[in-house]
């Protein structure tokens, strides 16, 4: 029972991180119809920003995280402006290749600036642990779950209740019709990249706290997993990304605990393949029939 609870909680923890990253993939896909494969590397940039802010400048961890959020949001906007915006009319393959190029660029810049050796992520060292039903749970895990839950509620309110949020939904459904309403597609895409990247920065703090060490390639694996989560949940769907992330994290941790650590990734991707075979639009992806 204790093992089960511990696995459940660590699955939710990992799933929260995937969900936060998957939101960026899914929102950008929904609005700009592109797969931003540089998104995973934003996590890495967020983590290094935190390290620099805390270790080199000596700022308190929470300020370091906020700084990471700002750096990543600005980086996301910059990448979109410089790399993707000129390709708005280009075939999607060109955009995809550009995104992969940006990903390598970020990794190699980090390699030049921070070197190839791993750096310890410093935050949260003093957070207490809790006992839940006999299982010892890190305070940081509780924090991850609580913050992720708040972000998801906040994001849902933002998308459904605010004017910008509704405009984002309008653009994701029909760009031309949205322009007819007076909504600027470019501005909406900028906002989307800023939000997605900011969420990745928050994910980077939890990732750093869970895995402790950061490398220039740190972003790739969680990036790929989160992309999988976004597809799993139904790419373009915000609740889908949340659900996909959580489910993926749970499957991964339970597979590690009860089946095999070696096989856990294979199982994760196996489940993805099965879901896509049964429901190609993903768990929450929907196709609405247009009436003529």
């Amino acid at each position: 029972m204790t093992v089960f609870i511990r696995t459940l909680i660590s699955g939710l923890n990992l799933g929260s991180i995937y969900a936060l990253i998957a939101l960026g993939y899914s929102m950008v896909y929904g609005i700009a119809r592109m797969l931003n494969f540089a998104h995973g590397d934003i996590i890495m940039v967020g983590a290094y920003s935190g390290i620099v802010a805390v270790m080199s400048i000596g700022l308190p961890p929470i300020v370091g995280i906020l700084l990471g959020v700002i750096v990543c949001a600005l980086l996301g906007i910059t990448i979109e402006r410089l790399a993707y915006k000129p390709l708005r009319q280009a075939p999607s393959l060109s955009i995809l290749i550009t995104a992969i190029g940006v990903s390598y660029l970020l990794q190699n810049l980090a390699l030049i600036i921070f070197g190839p050796e791993q750096k310890a992520y410093p935050m949260f060292s003093g957070v207490k642990s809790f006992q839940i039903l006999g299982a010892k749970i890190d305070g940081i895990t509780i924090l991850t779950l609580a913050v992720t839950a708040c972000i998801m509620i906040g994001l849902n309110l933002f998308i459904n209740k605010t004017k910008i949020g509704k405009a984002m939904r309008a653009v994701s459904e029909d760009k031309g019709a949205a322009e007819l309403m007076g909504i600027s597609t470019d501005r909406t895409i900028t906002v989307t990249f800023a939000i997605g990247s900011a969420l990745a920065a928050i994910a980077s703090a939890f990732y750093g706290a869970t895995y402790v060490y950061i490398l220039p390639t740190t972003g790739s694996m969680p990036g790929i997993k989160a992309f999988t989560a976004a597809v799993f949940g139904g790419i373009g769907s915000i609740p889908g990304a949340m659900l996909g992330g959580i489910v993926l994290g749970l499957i991964e941790q339970f597979a590690k605990q009860y089946i095999s650590t070696l096989w856990s990734n294979a199982i994760v991707f196996g489940v993805l393949i099965i879901v896509l075979l049964v429901k190609p639009t993903g768990l929450m992806g929907k196709t609405i029939q247009e009436k003529v």
Partner: peptide, 12 residues
Amino acid sequence: LVPEGRRIFLQM
């Protein structure tokens, strides 16, 4: 403009 095919936001 009321566009051809209406193009209302079906999910809203």
